[in-house]
Structures are given as C-alpha cells and as structure tokens.
C-alpha cells in the first residue's frame, strides 16, 4: 500500500499551526502531561504520527482532539516547544469544518453549535442561555434531568447573584460593526481553510 501524503500536506498547509506536526520527535511527553490523557483514543503524539502516515479517517473521526481542556501543559513541556495545544485545537477545527467530526460528540456540538453562536449573537457570553442550551440539547426530558441534578449549584449561583435569572441578554452597542467584522473574518477564514 502506498502512502497518501496529500492529507498530511493539507494539514500542514490549512490546519492552524499544522505545519509544526513535522517537527514532532515522538517522545510522548505531551501524552504523559495531559490531565485527560487516559481519555484520548490517540494521544497528541499518536495523532501527529497518524497525520504523517496519511491516516485521514483515523485522525479526523477520532474523538481525541475534543478531549483537550486547554491547560497548555503539553506546550510548556514539549522539548521542541511545539504549540501542541494549538495544533490539537487546529485539528479539531479542521475535522469539524471538513465534516468528519462526529456532530454528536458533546464538546464539538457545544463549541460549534452552542458556544460560538452564543458569543457572536450578542458580542458577549450569555452564561445563563449557554447553560440552558447545553442542558436541553438532547431534548426536554434530558434537560430537566440534568437541570435537576445541578439544581443546588444553580440555586446557589442565583442566590449569590452570579447567575442571571433572565437568560436573554442585549447586544453590544457596536453590534452591527462587530457582526460585519465577524462575517468578513469568516469569509477570509473559509477561503484559507479551503486552501485557496
């Protein structure tokens, strides 16, 4: 079987910070430094080697990249100072954009379908709406169940004025300009990600 290098080349060029994958020396310090290490199907080290070996489906369909807590331990410990956290974020984004990432993977769904629309919808995070949308993402029953499980915490947050009882929030004053900026940035980003 011949190696298909087109996937690796595309990742190097079009996945954020992807070109650094070439520099990985396979030591595994990233894997051993990750707080969610045991939960990754493939550790960062393994993901990088799979990219280099052209294993497109194995990499992009893996849930591994969605296990990153953004603790940045791997970055500061990498003996080659590779921006591992950013490479992994880039691969997660790449898998999502290219349509390989499991749309039901909970962090993928939360980040792309709930969190991002939440912040660009008004210009700022609406924490109460964010939590509600996440809890009710699997329907009413599941939402009520999870809401009840967390009711003491939610009540505590409400009582201490750290949760808005009204989940709707207003837009920032310069929202029109903000939205136009995001739209333009997304347009340029789509071109870049398509390898244009």
């Amino acid at each position: 079987m011949a190696y298909d290098l087109s996937f690796a080349q595309d990742v190097y060029k079009n996945s954020e910070m992807g070109h650094w994958i070439k520099m990985c020396k396979q030591c595994g310090v990233c894997a051993g430094s990750c707080p969610f290490g045991p939960h990754w199907e493939y550790s960062p080290r393994q993901l990088f080697q799979l990219v280099r070996a052209g294993k497109k489906e194995e990499v992009l369909k893996s849930h591994s990249m969605w296990m990153c807590t953004s603790c940045y331990n791997c970055i500061v410990r990498c003996p080659r100072s590779l921006p591992i956290t950013h490479i992994v974020h880039g691969l997660a984004r790449y898998a999502s954009v290219k349509g390989y990432a499991d749309p039901n993977q909970i962090t993928n769904r939360f980040a792309t379908q709930i969190f991002w629309p939440n912040i660009v919808g008004t210009g700022r995070v609406g924490e109460a709406m964010l939590t509600m949308r996440l809890y009710f993402a699997d329907g009413l029953g599941a939402g009520i169940k999870r809401g009840l499980e967390m009711k003491d915490s939610a009540l505590g947050m409400l009582m201490t004025k750290r949760l808005n009882p009204i989940p709707l929030r207003g837009k920032i004053k310069g929202y029109a300009g903000f939205a136009a900026m995001i739209a333009k940035a997304q347009e340029l980003e789509a071109k870049r990600e398509a390898g244009a």
């Binding site: 954020e16 953004s70 974020h89 984004r93 792309t112 660009v120 340029l188």
Partner: peptide
C-alpha cells in the same frame, strides 16, 4: 473553546 466554532481569524 472559541477555536472550534471560530477558527483562526474570527
């Protein structure tokens, strides 16, 4: 977590 929905430039 903005990287996933936003990508680099946005």
């Amino acid at each position: 977590i903005g990287y996933a929905g936003g990508g680099q430039l946005p």
